[in-house]
């Protein structure tokens, strides 16, 4: 089977989760071609060989520096058709959620979103994906000649990297103004902290933090762990924290190595967003709080006392 991976770049930076998708493709289908749309990044593209891409197709052209769902869908589908690929992988990022459905229509291909497992059995590709916010999983097969899968970020690994260089080819698709009917005119990146969906460690706070000013305790712990800060819906709705930090069924779904829940009760809609974290720590003064049912380690206590002690102890252990 011939596999193509859509590689996402923003401002010249290649997403780590795209590298996860390259490794997933190379390790299952023997090799893969990576397709990147955007500015010409030269050597960075050849470097994708490290994750298993044998070839990189760099699609460049006027207007393609910034994301446009319509132009990207046309340009990317064109490359897939030209190469005659049967399997297309995306990492299920904000961009892919916008783009992949349009690509699926253009390629007359079925799409399985946000997969957490992908296996090849003979000439079948079988994907597993969470449904009902992770309360169940389905295994699916796709009944179209071209099959598209998007992979949940942080679930697949980037594997052992090598110093292989990929061969880079260029394409300059023929696009008109009409193809750019939707276009991104500005990107505003928050400075400083990582985003919850990309972070390897998340320190998250809920109503048990008492007041928004107590978030400095969350931030101090996040600083020593190089972590993102998350929040429950209760505190987002109260205006204590921004929407972008909300974890759960109507917020972000996250799968970090370590998730520290501080003063969060563990409502079913919160668990939906974080229960696939590899290690969960809960700090809550109520021993009956449901969060302890999913936590690997728990401390029963007051966050106002436990958090500063935890920050200090970790500082001395990791030597920061």
């Amino acid at each position: 089977m011939k596999a193509i991976v859509f590689v996402e770049q923003r401002d010249g930076n290649i997403k780590k989760s795209s590298c996860e998708a390259i490794h997933a493709a190379a390790s299952r289908f023997g090799s893969c071609t990576a397709v990147v749309i955007g500015p010409d990044l030269g050597d960075a593209y050849a470097g994708l060989g490290a994750y298993g891409a044998s070839k990189v197709i760099a699609v460049t052209g006027d207007g393609l520096e910034n994301y446009s769902v319509t132009a990207y869908a046309k340009a990317f589908s064109g490359v897939v058709q030209e190469l005659g690929a049967d399997v297309v992988l995306f990492s299920a990022t904000a961009m892919a959620k916008d783009l992949a459905p349009r690509v699926a229509i253009r390629l007359d291909a079925a799409l399985a979103s946000d997969c957490t497992e992908l296996t090849v059995q003979g000439d079948e590709v079988i994907a597993t994906r969470p449904v009902y916010a992770g309360k169940a999983f389905i295994t699916v097969t796709l009944a179209t000649p071209v099959k598209i899968f998007s992979l949940r970020p942080n679930v697949f690994t980037i594997g052992e990297t090598s110093d292989a260089q990929a061969e880079v080819e260029k394409r300059a698709p023929d696009l008109s103004d009409d193809d750019f009917v939707v276009r991104v005119v500005e990107t505003k990146m928050a400075s400083g902290r990582k985003d919850v969906v990309e972070a390897d460690v998340i320190v998250s706070g809920g109503r048990g933090m008492g007041a928004p000013e107590n978030w400095r305790l969350i931030e101090e712990l996040a600083d020593v762990l190089d972590a993102a800060t998350g929040a429950s819906r209760a505190v987002v709705d109260a205006g204590w924290r921004p929407h972008a930090e909300q974890v759960g069924q109507t917020g972000k779904t996250v799968a970090p190595s370590l998730y520290i829940a501080c003063g969060i009760s563990g409502a079913i809609q919160h668990l939906a967003g974080m229960s696939s974290s590899k290690c969960i720590v809960a700090i809550n003064k109520d021993p009956e709080a449901p969060i302890f049912k999913v936590a690997d380690y728990g401390i029963i206590g007051d966050v106002m006392e436990v958090l500063p002690a935890l920050t200090n102890e970790i500082k001395s252990v990791v030597g920061k």
């Binding site: 169940a136 021993p287 049912k293 029963i300």
Partner: peptide, 25 residues
């Protein structure tokens, strides 16, 4: 998109309560 099977996630064992308060840190 053809569903072959739906299953529930494996039940997670209840974790370990390390202790109470600052002493458990």
């Amino acid at each position: 998109v053809q569903v072959m099977e739906m299953r529930l996630p494996p039940a997670k064992d209840a974790g370990k309560i390390v202790g109470e308060g600052v002493d458990a840190v």
